[in-house]
């Protein structure tokens, strides 16, 4: 199961953000994510169009981006006001899950990635491992948090809160095969209607993270929305790293030994 977020119909109402926070009891966040302030008197504008959330984080599991992009053809048409609801991608090969030393991050029966808050000890390894910069540690709590894809709801056959709240069905929840088909149809539709820049992001199971469990239809390049253009799961290179580390360890032992051997000779 997963999300397909069709940003071409997103109206930037931020209902997903609020629904997510209400259902999951995520605290409201003052200032940019990670600033560590929880005093709501310090709330402030970010000066980024209508986006005052900034990015995904421990206290923001859905984030609506507002991009004021120039028209496709300069001088022709209005500013393109792009909105997109970002979320944890629930990667098929999830770096956060791979590197978690405690097994707090697990893959659920819905093929989603879930942090068990009763196991997480806040080591923070998942934070730099995520190629999308999604998961973060809540400073006042110490543990890592991210979108659960409403595990508690999906277990009981309910739609995740954000998809339920989305008024335009920009956020769609369902089996990934079905969503991918739907996304392909939608992309064709948009291309036929002359939206040449429409593209699917994270749909391809052959990409660096094995395809996203939450993928997107974007109306511009991924960077414009703050998404990495070509994310790669860091553990893809892990076997090579282990080999080199083992060789280095052996080299250390040998070097120390050699230092002694020569010493005895003198």
């Amino acid at each position: 199961m997963g999300f397909f977020t069709d940003t071409s119909v997103c109206i930037g109402c931020k209902a997903c953000e609020v629904a997510c926070k209400v259902w999951n009891q995520v605290p409201a966040d003052a200032g940019p994510t990670g600033s560590g302030t929880s005093d709501l008197a310090e709330l402030d504008l970010l000066g980024m169009s209508y986006d005052n959330t900034g990015d995904l984080g421990a206290n923001t599991w859905r984030h609506v981006a507002f991009v004021e992009a120039p028209p496709r053809t300069p001088g022709a048409g209005d500013v393109r006001w792009l909105m997109s609801s970002d979320v944890c991608k629930h990667c098929t090969h999830a770096a956060c899950l791979d590197v978690c030393p405690t097994g707090a991050l697990i893959r659920t029966e819905f093929e989603t990635v879930y942090v068990q808050p009763d196991v997480c000890n806040g080591c923070g390894y998942c934070v730099p491992a995520c190629p999308y910069g999604v998961i973060d540690v809540r400073p006042d709590d110490g543990r890592a948090f991210k979108c659960t894809l409403c595990y508690d709801r999906t277990k009981h056959g309910l739609t995740p809160a954000c998809a339920q709240a989305c008024p335009t069905e920009s956020i769609q929840y369902g089996p990934l095969d079905e969503l991918r088909e739907r996304a392909d149809r939608r992309l064709e539709q948009l291309k036929a209607a002359g939206v040449a820049e429409a593209q699917l992001y994270g749909r391809d199971p052959g990409d660096g993270v094995g395809g996203d469990g939450a993928f997107f239809l974007l109306l511009d390049e991924p960077e414009v929305y703050g998404l990495p253009p070509d994310p790669v799961v860091t553990t893809r290179d892990l076997p090579g790293m282990w080999k080199r580390a083992a060789a280095a360890a052996a080299g250390l032992a040998v070097a120390v030994a050699v230092a002694f051997v020569e010493g005895r000779r003198r």
């Binding site: 209400v22 409201a28 003052a30 709330l43 402030d44 504008l45 000066g47 005052n52 959330t53």
Partner: peptide, 26 residues
């Protein structure tokens, strides 16, 4: 939850007006 989405009163102006009147972002 709603206050954090749009936490302060603001006004929207065009870059032309901003330049004319010396207004700065935020």
């Amino acid at each position: 939850y709603l206050a954090e989405l749009q936490p302060r009163a603001f006004c929207e102006v065009s870059p032309e007006l901003a330049r004319e009147r010396g207004l700065v972002q935020n």
